[in-house]
Design a protein around this nucleic acid. Structure first.
Length: 852
RNA sequence: GCGGACGUGGCGGAAUUGGUAUACGCGCUAGAUUUAGGUUCUAGUGUCUUUACGGCGUGAGAGUUCGAGUCUCUCCGUCCGCACCA
């Protein structure tokens, strides 16, 4: 068999064979250990991109390896199929969202299959299909029953382009929508929320259980949850029964309060404002409301504020201090009011300075000797309390709890834990999403749809005319329904759920994907969960991963599953980047085919261009279409390249020359194995020659290294390097008629099987095997084969390598020293020198320390 | 500003507990095969000089050690996340 390697022929053939053999199906429960390998499911945009390819190939190698290691593996795939692009396509092209989505799924499923992924397609789910979203709705009702779903009139993040509401997590630091990029506006609407804040503490604490997660993802979640502990303190308003509550992490500075500030939106503002100040206050509120979120939170923005004319009593010392409103106090955080301690808080300091408010020093640095210090900036560190009545002389660290206890005994405050995390706003004024199963009745109020009436079907034949509100709100036939309680005419909720809800439980559905009675059965979920390896992009570090953790804890508390955390190990794969050329004067990207790579110039202006590696995208003209790569080289080459080029968590720089390199490597393997002549193989003659021993060692070294690379941190790049070394060793081997050689060839194919599954099976068959290589166990490491007769001993003088000698393996320290001392390299340097010390590291080196 | 990660040839990247720095690949150079190009194969490829039994070399500088890419400290740089959170 001396034909050329043709990926196109063999890949289609083996994909068909595997399908017929059912190799990718999930085994029923048996006594094998389980392994759940999961990739984040894609949005069915219609076209596979390189980021997908990388994601799914990584998971596939892990799944295939684990199967060879004797695990029963669950490796499913599905579609995160609700979402806005389908509506946009409907508007732009007149295709109904459902039709567009299902077409895209067909297309992308075919593309995924071409990659040779060992996915159990019998468990495929699509979040937009009624048999899936029935259970999304059912789960929502569970939340509702558990008091974890509620409605609230709220100032929400309104995306003026997509015409919908966004969760806080979906608005970036500049106040822009994560999807449309539009500046988000504030709007008051009655919306559904999920009470994720009930789980804030557990979501934070359980990060410690996630040993297999990248540190940075955990840090990001920790910051997002934003726990801080301090005190809730109440300042009585003068001439009123009401009090202003503040949250502070520094109760020890309460004697330094020189004013109190309310957020402009705070409801007490109207009550405390005096007639004299009313015009000023109203003007200020007007001014602040005109500012965009971005302006208001800008870094170097001045802290503006005005007096309300009202005053409060400092409950610790009875002093009367003014109430102000200021733009830097956020209504959404804490109580929407702060106590102003300019001497010991950087923001208050700046604000007081700009608005001529007094300062009062109450914490003295430990190294200062008097209290008259002139502050140039706020002193925010710990120190000794002064000007604080009964607390004078106490360290400020102790003072925190002492002041809290005092506040409790005097009834003006208590200890308080505050989180930055807000409840999850899930209402979306969109059509293509999961309907919220709620009904509004004039008599009965808000009524949940009875479980037996689920799913609330999303009508699929809809007309889209232009961007704007959801068509559901206009579909009277759908909207009008009888109240399940009193049978009188009522109305359905026309908002749909945030699509992040759909993806917060799909990993549970895979464990029992066809269940028509419930979302999933407890035994199956407990058998497969948690996910042993989850793979996906870092962009989901907060949103999807936090929501999924929240959902898991809620369904656990509803006794639907018995685990605390959904994902045991998380691998965040790096981006796939490609070379882009940008004109730094005009900030325009130039397509690569218009450029001479030797001398990159802007074809229009003639400016020299700079090249960088950036994430592949249409707007940068640097995308590489996976379909073209598959056509030219085949799936095995694409897989090998992606795995070899960089470690999985690092960004990967696409490079056609390196793709060629992998293609060459697969061709070398093809030629190596096709060139094998089985007829000349001799019977084992017992004792191995040196060549045979060396080859056998190379083979087992490869087994050892690849196994370690796949067990630990998934170092696919070094695993492939080991495959190359083994293939080089086999190519150079002289003993081609030895059983060691042909055994080595077989092991090479077995080691290659998870990476290049089609080529490995084809060559395996060519060696006369009738069973697919993917049903064979991973080669067993024979430690004895790694033993060497001779080792290379490094001779060092004063820690510098001066030569090497070959010595028998396992020599004693004394012998090693003797060999080293007699070596030519050592002799040159120790001749006539006084040897101070000799360090012998067994099997490694001998170092002579000589008198200088 | 706060938090995290990282810095190794021309390039992507390797290096158990501190023990021969640059594995593997790309690129490049030379040669062989080929009508030619491509493919394939062989050899070479950190750097400097006085080409050696040599010097220098893992962002910079110091330290610990017989010995440091690896450990400690200081500094520089890049990337990422958060950012008025009281």
């Amino acid at each position: 068999m001396e034909t050329r390697y043709s990926a196109a022929d063999i890949e289609a053939k083996w994909q068909q064979q595997w399908l017929e053999l059912g190799l990718d199906q999930t085994p029923a429960k048996n006594d094998q250990p389980k392994f759940y390998a999961l990739s984040m499911f894609p949005y069915p945009s219609g076209k596979l991109h390189m980021g997908h390819v990388r994601n799914y190939v990584i998971t596939d190698v892990i799944a295939r390896y684990k199967r060879m290691k004797g695990f029963r593996v669950l490796h499913p795939m599905g579609w995160d199929a609700f979402g806005l692009p389908a509506e946009n396509a409907a508007i732009d092209r007149g295709i109904p969202p459902a039709k567009w989505t299902y077409q895209n799924i067909e297309q992308m499923r075919d593309q995924l299959k071409q990659l040779g992924l060992s996915i159990d397609w019998d468990r495929e789910v699509a979040t937009c299909s009624p048999d899936y979203y029935k259970w999304t709705q059912w789960l929502f009702l569970q939340f509702y029953k558990g008091g974890l779903a509620y409605q609230k009139e709220a100032a929400v993040n309104w995306d003026p382009i997509d015409q919908t509401v966004l969760a806080n997590e979906q608005v970036d630091a500049e106040g822009k929508s994560w999807r449309s990029g539009a500046i988000v506006e504030k709007k008051l609407l009655r919306q559904w929320f999920l009470k994720i804040t009930d789980y804030a503490e557990e979501l934070l604490q359980d990060l410690d259980k996630l040993g297999g997660w990248p540190e940075r993802v955990k840090t990001m979640q920790q910051n997002w949850i934003g726990k801080s502990s301090g005190a809730h303190l109440e300042f009585p308003i003068v001439d009123s029964d009401e009090k202003i509550a503040v949250f502070t992490t520094r109760p020890d500075t309460i004697y330094g309060v020189t004013y109190v500030v309310l957020a402009p939106e705070h409801p007490l503002v109207a009550k405390v404002t005096t007639a004299k100040q009313k015009a000023t206050v109203d003007a200020f509120i007007e001014e602040v409301s005109k500012e965009s979120e971005q302006d208001r939170t800008a870094d170097d923005k001045p802290k503006k504020g005005v007096l309300t004319g009202g005053t409060v009593i400092n409950p610790a010392n009875g002093e009367e201090v003014p109430i102000l409103i200021a733009n830097y106090v956020l209504y959404e955080y804490g109580t929407g009011a702060v106590m102003g301690v300019p001497a010991h808080d950087a923001r208050d300091f700046k604000f007081a300075e700009e608005n001529n408010l007094p300062r009062k020093v109450v914490i003295l640095p430990d190294d200062a000797d008097n209290s008259d210090i002139c502050l140039l900036e706020a002193y925010t560190d710990a120190g000794t309390m002064i000007n604080s009545n009964r607390f004078n002389g106490m360290s400020s660290v102790k003072g925190k709890s002492a002041v809290i206890r005092y506040a409790e005994s005097e009834g003006f405050g208590e200890e308080r834990i505050q989180y930055r995390l807000r409840d999850w706003l899930i209402s979306r004024q969109r059509y293509w999403g999961c309907p919220i199963p709620m009904i509004y009745c004039d008599d009965c109020g808000v009524v949940p749809v009875p479980e037996e009436n689920l799913p609330v079907i999303l009508p699929e034949e809809v007309e889209f005319s232009a961007r704007g509100g959801s068509p559901l709100a206009q579909m009277d036939g759908w909207k009008n329904v009888d109240c399940p309680c009193c049978n009188k005419p009522a109305r359905r909720e026309t908002d749909t759920m945030d699509t992040f809800i759909d993806s917060s439980w799909y990993f549970l559905r895979y464990t029992d994907a066809k269940n028509e009675e419930k979302p999933f059965n407890l035994d199956d979920a407990n058998d497969w969960m948690g996910v042993d390896q989850y793979v996906g992009g870092i962009e989901h570090a907060i949103l999807h991963l936090l929501y999924s953790r929240f959902f898991t804890k809620v369904v656990r508390d509803r006794k639907l599953v018995g685990i605390d955390e959904p994902f045991k190990r998380l691998l965040t794969q790096g981006m796939v980047q490609a070379l882009t050329y940008k004109n730094t004067n005009t900030n325009k990207y130039i397509p690569i085919d218009q450029i001479d790579p030797e001398d990159p110039q802007d074809p229009e202006t003639g400016d020299p261009l700079t090249g960088f590696y950036e994430k592949m995208s249409k707007s940068k003209y640097n995308g590489v279409d996976p379909a073209l790569v598959l056509d030219k080289y085949g799936a095995d080459t694409a897989r090998m390249f992606i795995l070899f080029k960089a470690p999985p968590e690092k960004d990967l720089e696409w490079d056609d020359a390196d793709v060629e390199g992998q293609f060459r490597f697969l061709n070398r393997i093809w030629n190596l194995v096709s060139g094998c002549d089985l007829s000349v193989v001799k019977k084992s003659s017992g004792e191995l020659s040196k060549d045979e021993k060396d080859l056998r060692r190379a083979v087992h070294t490869a087994i050892k290294e690849i196994q370690e690379d796949l067990e630990g941190d998934y170092q696919f790049n070094t695993a492939i390097a080991e495959l190359m070394k083994l293939s080089n060793a086999l190519k150079d081997a002289k003993c081609v008629t030895s059983p060691v050689y042909i055994g080595g060839i077989e092991i090479l194919l077995l080691l290659l099987a998870p990476f290049a599954p089609h080529l490995a099976d084809e060559l395996w068959q060519s060696l006369g095997h009738t069973q697919s290589i993917h049903t064979v166990s991973f080669p067993k490491l024979d430690e004895s084969a790694l033993k060497v007769d001779e080792i290379t001993l490094v001779i060092q003088i004063m820690g510098k390598t001066r030569g090497t000698i070959e010595v028998p393996a396992g020599s004693s320290k004394e012998d090693l020293e003797k060999f080293a001392r007699e070596s030519e390299a050592a002799q040159r340097y120790i001749e006539g020198q006084e040897i101070r010390k000799i360090i012998v590291v067994p099997n490694k080196l001998v170092n002579f320390v000589i008198a200088k």
